[in-house]
Simulated scan of single mutants.
Amino acid sequence: MSLVSTAELVGTAREKDAAVFAFNVISLEHAEAVAAGAERADVSAVLQISENAVRYHGGRLRPLADAALGVIREARVPLALHLDHVTSVELLRAAPEAGFSSVMFDASKLPYEENVRVTAQAVEWAHARGVWLESELGRVGGKEGEPPLDAHAPGARTDPAEAAAYVGETGVDALAVAVGSSHAMTERSAALDHGLIGRLRDAVPVPLVLHGSSGVPEGELRAAVAAGMRKINVGTALNVAYTAAVRAALAAAPREVDPRRYTRPGRDAMAETVADYLRLLDGV
């Protein structure tokens, strides 16, 4: 059986001073592409479904979760299923029954004290049901149509002392931190603060998570893992590959109406993108 827990994959990566990649899934094609890419690279990965993806599917979690689980169970490498950027308590509480071993509960837009309070409640609920819980401190930016946040803006980055206090007060299992990346970047131009990553690694006892990794160049990702990042989230890069392949297929056959003829190359492009990312950290 190829279904494993996110905690297991991240824990193994941490023991090896390595990292696990987590790829965002919006459709069945995304799930198939992540599994195919992981099999090509022969490396484990996490499939993650965001609250935005659930909203895209009419607010129904189970259809996409069931599809992703079906793909995972047929895969030839161990894969995990994670629920990402959850702000809804109702959605959080639907996660265990839907087959998720982990959730990223996102209260990062709230004032610090409120973030601590609601996240601690989420952790207590999740741990009582064996669910691993990730949260975020700092301002990664770029979600839900927002322009990418200036990662150098005052107050944008995660403070190590505050992160240590936050982890102690909430009991989270992993912490997403703001160190220079941003969600929804379509070009790989982000410059990370690797010194800050190292200070955060030393300050908190839990694995660090990098969101917005699609905008981070290869060398920067390798350095981030060497500095202490243990889970690397990728979403937009898959959509860039998929969209480019679909556009090319339709341009080559403008009268085509069978979606299998143009979504197949899109799915294949995403699978190769996944494999490229997984091969990137081989040996790191």
Rank of each mutant, 00 (worst) to 15 (best):
A67I: 07
A67C: 11
A68N: 11
A68P: 04
A68Y: 12
A68F: 12
V71M: 04
V71P: 02
I72Y: 02
I72W: 03
I72V: 14
R73F: 09
R73Y: 05
R76G: 15
R76S: 14
V77H: 02
V77F: 05
L81F: 08
L81G: 03
H82Y: 07
L83T: 08
D84R: 12
V86I: 13
V86F: 10
T87K: 14
T87P: 08
S88Q: 11
S88K: 02
V89Q: 15
V89W: 14
V89F: 12
E90G: 13
E90K: 15
L91V: 09
L92D: 04
L92H: 11
L92R: 11
L92W: 11
R93S: 04
R93E: 13
R93Y: 07
A94C: 09
A95C: 05
A95W: 00
P96R: 09
A98D: 11
A98Q: 12
A98V: 08
F100V: 00
S101Q: 02
S102W: 00
F105M: 10
D106P: 03
A107D: 03
A107Y: 01
S108I: 01
K109N: 12
L110K: 12
L110G: 00
Y112H: 14
Y112T: 08
E113M: 04
E114D: 14
N115I: 08
R117G: 01
R117I: 05
T119V: 15
T119W: 02
V123A: 06
W125L: 04
W125T: 05
H127D: 04
A128V: 10
R129H: 11
L133Q: 02
E134H: 10
E134R: 05
E134S: 10
S135A: 15
S135Q: 08
S135D: 13
E136W: 03
G138P: 02
R139A: 15
R139C: 14
V140G: 07
G142R: 08
K143M: 15
E144G: 05
E146R: 14
P147G: 04
P147A: 11
P147R: 02
P148M: 01
L149W: 13
L149F: 15
D150E: 07
A151V: 15
A151N: 09
H152F: 13
H152I: 03
A153C: 12
A153H: 10
P154N: 06
P154M: 07
G155R: 03
R157H: 09
E162W: 10
V167D: 08
V167Y: 07
V167C: 13
G168E: 12
T170I: 10
G171E: 04
V172E: 00
D173W: 00
L175D: 11
L175I: 10
V177F: 05
V177H: 01
A178W: 06
V179G: 03
S181K: 07
S182H: 06
H183C: 09
M185P: 09
E187N: 08
E187C: 07
R188P: 00
S189R: 15
A190Q: 11
A190M: 10
A191N: 11
A191F: 13
L192P: 04
D193F: 06
D193C: 09
L196K: 14
L196M: 12
L196P: 04
L196N: 10
I197D: 05
I197K: 08
L200V: 12
R201G: 07
V206G: 04
V206R: 03
V206L: 04
P207W: 00
L208E: 02
V209P: 02
V209A: 00
H211S: 14
